[in-house]
Write a protein that binds this DNA or RNA. Structure first.
Lengths: 102, 102
DNA sequence: GACATATTTTCACAAACATGCAAATATCAG
DNA sequence: CTGATATTTGCATGTTTGTGAAAATATGTC
């Protein structure tokens, strides 16, 4: 794994590794439908501007996806993509040396 | 998931979400045998004290395990445990609502 | 004991970060 | 156009964090 990929993975993990951001992810996780930012705001007791910034970070790392709808922004979780990256990382950790030869 | 578990997961992801710490994890990952801190020091170009602190963080989060051996500290990766936690998280993200009923 | 090696701790510091508030922007309803 | 709602941005602030250098600690060798 080259340093660029490693940096990307580190950035992803860092984005997920903050309590309020992780709470937003779980909130989106439990919602059947995409949610707007104000709705997401209720799960963590912080200012709307804070939620906005956290969602921006999550979007930059590809954790969530955003769609404009009128004056609202509708967010949804990139479930498959994130789950895949996490499992890939788990495989690397567990597999270790034999990962590629197997 | 209660807030305590969520905080623990956030702490784990944060520990992994720093470039040099992640590099240490990958370094340990590629080693068949446990390594001492000085050896690990070579993979990232930082001071030995920095490596020591990073390893401390990783140990606190249960990512690595430490064993004293003379004046050396031998570190090894908790492969199964970390991989399991990552997969659990991946399942939660991907499974979403249906995770418990399935 | 004296010295070398491995590691941790303390200190200082700059950069990054999370946060709240207020102002700005965007869009809808009337 | 006016006002309301949703969201972002700028600013200020306190906190955390990653870092290197030097001192301290621990343990091995002679």
């Amino acid at each position: 794994m080259d340093s660029k990929h490693r940096q990307e993975l580190a950035d992803l993990l860092k984005a997920l590794g903050e309590y309020n951001r992780l709470s937003l992810v779980y909130q989106l996780c439990q919602c059947e439908r995409p949610q707007n930012a104000m709705c997401l705001c209720e799960c963590c007791s912080v200012d709307a501007s804070v939620v906005s910034r956290h969602l921006k970070v999550l979007a930059q790392e590809g954790v969530v996806q955003m769609k404009k709808k009128g004056r609202e922004r509708i967010y949804s979780l990139n479930r498959a993509e994130i789950a895949h990256k996490l499992r890939e990382f788990a495989d690397e950790i567990e597999g270790g040396l034999e990962a590629k030869s197997a």
